[in-house]
């Protein structure tokens, strides 16, 4: 405690109109840290409104941390992270970046392929891209799931209306789907296994070289059909549900199959909301 006349506090108070007396100043300075006086011996800190600034700083710090450290750090902090919409560690966001990267790789591959005559397999990016063959198992799983759901067996077939109402709340991830009709004509004929369904889009994995062009039989060998480089690559496609009609089928045994189609315009609902939603008939103007 410094009560000399040179101290900053003394000089400041001497300018103040309340402290016109020298004694008053000394008294005030003496009693400022006392326990009994009018002053309190602690500081009250209230949160200011500039919350955003501080959280941004925190974000910057946390980005610099490695993933291992984040996992090992307090669980309480982790909870906060999960609530953050833009956190890269959220599975949703991780999935988003994964698909973005994959699309980017496909784009690069597409560029490279269009310049050369080399096969797709010779490029490095090919190994990192999603391939149709890996998802066939999922499709088989889905088939058995749908058979269970509709209670289909070799001899017995379900009632049409009951089956359709069950299908409307069924999960389509894993189904093999084609675009039958679409306002974006480039999408028509694309077929693949669904890996994700969002509110407005299906994300599907398409096979390589498999398009309608395979079904064309031209007797003259020199006129063979050429695939575009995009078709040669296959991989992920994002197809919007709006103004499109999708077809999918359920094989019952080796010879028989049931075909269904989904009207995309009426399907613009998140898949988890679809289970409980009550649907209504609408105007059919947008279906023709």
């Amino acid at each position: 405690m410094n009560n000399s006349k040179d101290s900053i506090e003394y000089k400041l108070l001497s300018r103040c109109s309340n402290f016109n007396n020298e004694k008053k100043i000394v008294d005030a300075l003496d009693s400022r840290y006392s326990l009994t006086g009018s002053q309190k011996n602690y500081l009250i800190l209230k949160p200011t409104e500039g919350d955003n600034n501080t959280s941004k700083n925190k974000k910057r710090k946390k980005k610099s941390l490695s993933i291992l450290r984040q996992i090992t750090s307090n669980t309480g902090n982790n909870n906060n992270n999960n609530n953050n919409k833009f956190n890269g560690l959220r599975t949703r966001n991780e999935f988003k970046t994964f698909i973005k990267n994959n699309l980017k790789l496909q784009k690069n591959l597409n560029k490279k392929l269009s310049c050369t005559t080399n096969s797709v397999e010779s490029f490095q990016e090919f190994n990192e891209i999603l391939k149709f063959e890996d998802f066939i198992k999922i499709n088989e799983l889905w088939n058995s799931y749908l058979k269970n759901l509709l209670s289909v067996s070799n001899n017995k077939l379900p009632n049409v209306q009951a089956a359709l109402s069950k299908l409307s709340s069924a999960d389509l991830i894993g189904s093999f789907i084609t675009v039958i009709k679409s306002s974006t004509y480039n999408n028509v004929g694309i077929a693949g296994i669904v890996i994700w369904e969002s509110q407005y889009n299906f994300i599907i994995v398409t096979p390589r070289n498999n398009n309608w062009k395979d079904d064309i039989n031209i007797p003259i060998p020199t006129l063979s059909v050429n695939y575009t480089s995009k078709e040669k690559i296959g991989g992920i496609r994002i197809i919007s549900k709006r103004n499109t009609i999708f077809g999918f089928y359920l094989p019952i045994n080796d010879q028989e199959l049931i075909e269904f189609s989904v009207i995309g315009n009426r399907f613009l609902i998140k898949s988890y909301d679809r289970a409980n939603k009550k649907f209504k008939n609408h105007n059919v103007n947008d279906l023709i």
Partner: peptide, 9 residues
């Protein structure tokens, strides 16, 4: 079923 899933093509 309510114009969502149709049977047949």
């Amino acid at each position: 079923y309510k114009q969502i899933v149709t049977i047949d093509e």
